[in-house]
Design a protein around this nucleic acid. Structure first.
Length: 417
RNA sequence: GUGAGUGUAGCUCAAUGGUUAGAGCACUGGACUGUGGCUCCAGGUGUUGGGGGUUCGAGUCCCCUCACUCACCCCA
C-alpha cells in the first residue's frame, strides 16, 4: 500500500486504456458533428437547487448520493451527478431558446455520485452526452437513437439491445399510477420491504425490482403504454413506426422506469450482456417540462448520455489496444553525437515527426533495445564515424535493413515516409 | 447504507502453525568493446494491506481497521 491513494471510487486513467477512451470520444464527436450537434461545456459544479429541482427531491441521487458542500460564501453547491440539468440551466440562462430550434449540444466530462463502487460504477464517472432542445416531433427521438447506433456500430460493438418505453406525461401518468396501485393493492403484502415503501411514494419503481418474488407477483400488471393520452400515444406510435422504417432493432420494455423526475414520454436504454449488473452503456429520454421548470418558455427536449467506462470496458474485450509508437529513435555514441541528436530531434519534431532520443551513457545495444521496446520504426545512429563523414546510419527495425543518409537530408528522408 | 469474497514482488500466482518467503512475466545490466527481437547469466524484486491478540513460534488461527472485487440498493 502506497502512502497516498486515489479516493475510493475514483480512478486514474492512463495508457494503454486511455487509448480506448480516446477512440470512444473521437468516434462519438465525429458522429455528433454529422448530426449538427455542437459542443457545450458547462461547469461541473452548480447550485444544489438545480439538481434538486430537476432530479427530484425523493430520488436516491438527491437524498444520499450527491457531493454537496457549502462553499466559502455559504452557498450550497454540488458536483454534478448528471449532465442534463446544467445544460438546461445554461440554455435558459443564456436565452438560447431565442435561437432557431432545435438547439443541439453535446458535452463530455466527469459526473459525481457518492455510491458504493462496483463493476461499471464509480464515484467519478464520465459521460458523453447530447441534448436537443426545442422540438417535440418524434423524428428527433428517432434521430438520436440512430445516432447512438451509428456510434456503437462504428466502434464495432456487438450484442447491444435498444430498449424503449414511454412513461407518458403529467396528464396521463397519474391515471396509470392509479391503475397500477389498484392492481397491486391486494398483493402488496407479498412484496419486499423496498417495494412496500415504493408503493407509497413511487409505485412505478416496483416494476424495476429484481427480486424474484416481486417479479412474479407483478406479472400481468397494467402497462403504461395502454394508458397514454392521445398526444403521448401518437408520439410513441410515430416514433416506433419511424424506427421500423429505418430498420432500427428496438424492443419495448414496459418495465423500464426512469429514476429522475424530469422524464416524459420517450425513455430508452442501451444495454450489453457482457457487462455486470450495471449493464446500461447509454440511456436517455425526453424531458418536455424541464426548461419551463427552470424558468424558460415551454420547450420540449430530448437527450441521452453514454457511459465512458462501460463502453471502454466493452471495447477492451473486442479491440486490441493500439499503442502509438515513435517514428524515429536517435541512438548516439559520445558527447558530441548526443549534442547533435538534440538538434536533429528538434528539427524532426518541428516537422510533426515523433522522435525519441537515447539518454545518459547507455551502450548502443541498450539504446537499440529501448528503441525496440518503444516499437520505433527507425533508428538513427550517430557515432564518431558518422560525425566525421556527415552521414548518419539509419536502421529500419521491422526488417533490420539499414543505410546511410547525409545529416542535411535527414528531414527529407523521413518526410517522405 | 447492507451482504459476501479477496488482500504475498511492478503484474499473474505458490508456500501443512516451524529455518533467512518462492516461481514465471516484466524491469536493469552483461555474455556480444558500435547494432534490437532469440538464448543464457547476474541483479532491486517484499514493512506478506495496517494494527492488536493467541502461541515457544503467525504469510498461515482470532479480533479490529483499511482497501479492492462482486452483488444488493440506485442509475445517464
Amino acid at each position: 500500500m502506497t502512502k497516498y491513494n486515489a479516493l475510493r471510487g475514483f480512478q486514474d486513467i492512463f495508457p494503454p486504456e486511455i487509448y480506448l477512451w480516446q477512440r470512444v470520444e473521437k468516434t462519438a464527436k465525429e458522429v455528433f458533428l454529422t448530426y449538427g450537434f455542437q459542443e457545450l461545456k458547462p461547469p461541473i459544479i452548480e447550485s444544489t437547487e438545480i439538481f434538486i429541482r430537476s432530479i427530484g427531491e425523493t430520488s436516491d441521487i438527491v437524498e444520499k448520493e450527491m457531493y454537496t458542500f457549502t462553499d466559502k460564501g455559504g452557498r450550497s453547491v454540488t458536483l454534478r451527478p448528471e449532465g442534463t440539468a446544467p445544460v438546461v440551466r445554461c440554455y435558459v440562462q443564456n436565452r438560447l431558446y431565442n435561437l432557431p430550434s432545435p438547439q443541439k449540444f453535446f458535452y463530455s466530462g466527469p459526473m459525481f455520485r457518492y455510491e458504493r463502487p462496483q463493476r461499471g460504477r464509480l464515484r467519478q464517472f464520465y459521460h458523453i452526452g447530447i441534448e436537443a432542445l426545442g422540438i417535440s416531433d418524434p423524428k428527433i427521438d428517432a434521430e438520436i437513437l440512430l445516432m447512438l447506433r451509428t456510434i456503437f456500430d462504428r466502434l464495432n460493438l456487438r450484442g447491444l439491445s435498444y430498449e424503449l418505453n414511454s412513461i407518458g406525461c403529467e396528464r396521463c401518468r397519474p391515471n396509470y399510477k392509479k391503475a397500477l396501485m389498484d392492481f397491486l393493492k391486494d398483493r402488496i403484502n407479498g412484496f419486499c420491504s423496498d417495494c412496500k415503501r415504493r408503493y407509497e411514494f413511487n409505485p412505478m419503481r416496483i416494476l424495476d425490482c429484481k427480486i424474484k418474488e416481486c417479479m412474479k407477483l407483478r406479472v400481468g400488471s397494467p402497462k403504461m403504454t395502454d394508458f397514454l393520452c392521445e398526444g403521448c400515444k401518437v408520439h410513441f406510435d410515430t416514433l416506433l413506426s419511424l424506427l421500423r422504417f429505418a430498420e432500427f432493432p428496438y424492443s419495448i420494455n414496459h418495465d423500464m422506469v426512469r429514476g429522475l423526475d424530469y422524464y416524459t414520454r420517450t425513455t430508452f436504454e442501451v444495454r450489453s450482456k457482457q457487462l455486470g449488473a450495471q449493464n446500461a452503456v447509454a440511456a436517455g429520454g425526453r424531458y418536455d417540462r424541464l426548461v419551463e421548470e427552470f424558468g424558460g418558455p415551454p420547450t420540449p427536449a430530448v437527450g441521452f448520455a453514454i457511459g465512458m467506462e462501460r463502453v471502454s470496458e466493452l471495447l477492451s474485450y473486442s479491440d486490441k489496444i493500439e499503442i502509438p509508437s515513435p517514428e524515429v529513435f536517435i541512438a548516439t555514441i559520445g558527447t558530441s553525437a548526443a549534442n547533435e541528436s538534440l538538434v536533429i530531434a528538434s528539427n524532426l519534431r518541428n516537422k510533426g515527426i515523433w522522435t525519441e532520443i537515447g539518454y545518459s551513457k547507455n551502450s548502443l545495444k541498450s539504446q537499440l533495445r529501448k528503441a525496440d521496446r518503444l516499437s520505433a520504426h527507425y533508428v538513427l545512429i550517430i557515432g564518431e564515424d558518422e560525425l566525421k563523414t556527415g552521414k548518419l546510419k539509419w536502421k529500419r527495425l521491422s526488417d533490420g535493413s539499414q543505410g546511410d543518409v547525409a545529416i542535411s537530408k535527414v528531414l527529407e528522408f523521413f518526410e517522405r515516409r
